[in-house]
Design a protein around this nucleic acid. Structure first.
Length: 271
DNA sequence: ATATCGACCTGCTAGC
DNA sequence: TGCTAGCAGGTCGATA
């Protein structure tokens, strides 16, 4: 579910409310992708300074260390003064003086991980090697184009890898490539410079629009207030296999790349 | 470096 | 109606 827009929308939906709160309890449920990395009791009494985002990770800054939250494939957060009793898919509660932040994650590919700092422990391992933040003001399209020249993988897979730019998942990769008019199967180093620059812009544009639309709710994405997103209505190729391309009318194709579905228009997207 | 696969886990849907 | 296969927004690690 969650790519950069969904994570960012989630962040915005509770960050200001939780900032300044003190942790009263940390209550883990079933095991998630990675262990917490500290005793839950060690978080009690910590002050929450704020919530940032890096790629698809939420970084909850504490007065001592930080907590990384990843939503995996099916995760979502809710934040409320009071929460109903935990359901079978609620796997972490962070009870604070401002309310309880709860991770709901049926597939449990998500994670809640403590680290002493961004550059230490699990945080260093998870955040190290991530690519550029596409929505940052200082995002460098020229550097992005240059980086493509150093990789020979299919451009769609390179986007998904997060090594060049972070936050682009399966939906937005197809959408960005469509907007840039690039065939997802083309090797990254064979994308022309102008196309690469166009792709950089397309990535920013798609992700930006998706954030503005509250993210994409295919089935169950909700922000921390329980609101769903609308970007699924704006998707031009994702999930539209066999339907007419909105630009040229040719049927949208679906192929497999790296064991994941890719949607594209063979007429509008060449090289 | 790339390519391919399997693993993690649960739920939903299409098809028989 | 019931079963099964296949698929789903993500990532890591092992193997050639």
């Amino acid at each position: 579910m969650p790519e950069l827009p969904e994570v960012e929308v989630t962040r915005r939906s509770f960050a200001s409310r939780i900032a300044g709160a003190r942790i009263i309890a940390a209550i883990p449920g079933k095991p998630l992708r990675w262990p917490l990395g500290c005793l839950p009791e060690a978080l009690v009494g910590r002050r929450i300074l704020g919530v940032r985002r890096r790629g698809k990770y939420l970084l909850v800054d504490l007065d001592q260390g930080l907590v990384l939250v990843h939503l995996g494939m099916s995760g979502s957060l809710s934040f409320a003064a009071t929460q109903p009793p935990a359901g079978p898919h609620d796997h972490f509660d962070l009870v604070t003086t401002a309310g309880t932040l709860r991770l709901h994650d049926p597939r449990r590919f998500g994670a809640v991980v403590w680290a002493p700092s961004e550059g230490e422990g699990m945080a260093a391992k998870l955040l190290g090697g991530l690519g550029a933040e596409p929505l940052a003001e200082d995002f460098d399209a020229q550097a992005f184009a240059g980086a493509l020249k150093r990789h020979h993988v299919a451009i769609k897979l390179l986007l998904l890898s997060g090594r060049i730019v972070v936050g682009v998942g399966n939906i937005y990769a197809s959408e960005a490539l469509f907007r840039a008019g690039i065939d997802p199967r083309v090797a990254a180093d064979r994308v022309s410079r102008p196309r690469a620059l166009k792709l950089a812009e397309a990535v920013r544009e798609v992700l930006g629009e998706a954030v503005a639309r509250g993210g994409t709710t295919l089935r169950d994405f909700r922000d921390a207030n329980g609101d769903h997103g609308w970007f699924q209505l704006d998707a031009r190729v994702y999930g539209r296999a066999g339907l007419a391309c909105l630009t040229c009318g040719a049927p949208v194709r679906m192929i497999r790349q790296g064991q994941r579905s890719t949607f594209f228009c063979a007429h509008c997207q060449r090289r």
